[in-house]
Simulated scan of single mutants.
Amino acid sequence: MSTVDGVINGTTWQGPARDWFVDDWNTSFKGALGKLNEAFGMAGRDCWARADELRRLMGVG
């Protein structure tokens, strides 16, 4: 997200299409990507917890 923000802020692109994109980026896309990132993080932590529990139950590790 920071890469896209940097490109948007550093571009010479002007006009209504840019305005529409920037508005969508700031109001919809960034929020959706943030939620997706959070969901992946939660899924990853759940995988680690399940793996740790399996290792504990199996007496491995």
Rank of each mutant, 00 (worst) to 15 (best):
D19I: 11
C47P: 03
W25N: 00
P16Q: 12
D24Y: 13
A51Y: 15
T12Q: 07
R45H: 07
M58K: 06
N26E: 08
G15W: 13
R55C: 09
L54W: 14
G6I: 06
D5L: 07
R45V: 15
P16N: 13
D19C: 02
F29L: 07
K35D: 11
D24K: 04
R50V: 14
V60A: 08
M42I: 12
Q14G: 04
K30C: 08
G59W: 13
G10R: 04
G34K: 05
W48P: 00
R18C: 07
A49K: 02
L57K: 00
P16E: 14
V4T: 08
W13M: 03
F40H: 01
W25R: 00
W20Y: 11
T27V: 07
E53M: 06
G6L: 03
G10M: 08
G10S: 10
D19N: 09
G6N: 06
G6E: 14
G34Y: 08
A32Q: 12
R50F: 15
L36S: 03
D46Y: 15
A49V: 14
G41E: 11
W48L: 09
R50T: 13
V22D: 02
W20L: 01
A39V: 08
T3G: 02
M42F: 12
S2L: 12
V22P: 00
G31S: 07
Q14V: 09
N26S: 05
K35P: 03
A17P: 04
N9S: 09
W48S: 01
A49N: 05
R45T: 15
S28W: 15
W25F: 09
C47Y: 13
K30D: 12
C47H: 13
G34D: 11
R18I: 10
A32R: 03
T3Q: 03
G59D: 10
A51P: 04
D19W: 14
G6A: 04
D24T: 11
M1L: 05
K35M: 12
G44Q: 11
D52C: 02
Q14L: 09
T11Y: 06
D24P: 01
F40V: 07
E53L: 11
V7T: 09
L36P: 01
W48I: 06
M1H: 10
G61P: 02
S28D: 15
L57C: 05
C47K: 04
D23H: 11
D5H: 08
